[in-house]
Computed example of a mutant assay.
Amino acid sequence: PGEDLAMLAACDHVISSTGTFSFWAGWLSKGVVLYYKNFPRKGSPLDKVFQPADAFPEYW
């Protein structure tokens, strides 16, 4: 996992999933990060507690 994260962090672009591994890869890469537009689904239990600013930095 450490080598995989280092390789992703060295990339110019990262496609992120909803997991923390993808978050850290994108955050460490300092490059372009693509992520889900409509996450979480509106009205879902997660939507009620999810704070997008905590998961998606402004520079993404």
Rank of each mutant, 00 (worst) to 15 (best):
P1E: 15
P1D: 14
G2P: 02
G2R: 15
G2L: 15
E3N: 13
E3G: 10
D4M: 13
D4A: 14
D4K: 12
L5Y: 15
A6K: 14
A6P: 07
M7A: 15
M7H: 14
L8E: 14
L8S: 12
L8W: 11
L8R: 10
L8K: 10
L8Y: 11
A9N: 07
A10M: 08
C11Y: 05
D12C: 00
D12W: 03
D12Q: 01
D12S: 00
D12F: 05
H13C: 13
H13N: 13
H13P: 04
V14A: 07
V14Q: 01
V14P: 00
V14S: 00
V14C: 01
I15N: 08
I15S: 04
I15V: 15
S16M: 03
S16H: 00
S17E: 10
S17R: 05
S17N: 11
T18I: 06
G19H: 10
T20K: 11
T20Y: 15
F21R: 05
F21V: 06
F21D: 08
S22H: 07
S22I: 07
F23K: 02
F23S: 05
F23H: 09
W24P: 03
W24A: 04
W24I: 06
W24R: 02
A25K: 02
A25D: 02
A25F: 03
G26I: 01
G26W: 02
W27T: 10
W27L: 13
S29N: 09
S29F: 10
K30V: 02
G31D: 04
G31Y: 00
G31A: 09
V32Y: 06
V32F: 07
V33H: 00
V33M: 04
L34T: 06
L34V: 09
L34E: 09
L34W: 12
Y35C: 02
Y35A: 06
K37C: 04
K37F: 14
N38C: 04
N38H: 03
N38V: 02
N38K: 03
F39M: 03
F39K: 00
P40F: 12
P40E: 11
P40T: 08
R41L: 12
R41Q: 14
R41C: 12
G43Y: 08
G43W: 11
S44K: 05
S44N: 03
P45G: 02
P45C: 08
P45H: 12
L46W: 11
L46M: 11
L46T: 08
L46G: 06
D47Y: 13
D47H: 09
D47M: 04
K48N: 12
F50I: 05
F50Q: 05
Q51S: 06
P52I: 07
P52R: 02
A53D: 05
D54M: 07
D54Y: 10
F56D: 01
P57R: 04
P57Y: 12
P57H: 10
E58L: 10
E58F: 08
E58D: 09
Y59D: 09
W60Q: 02
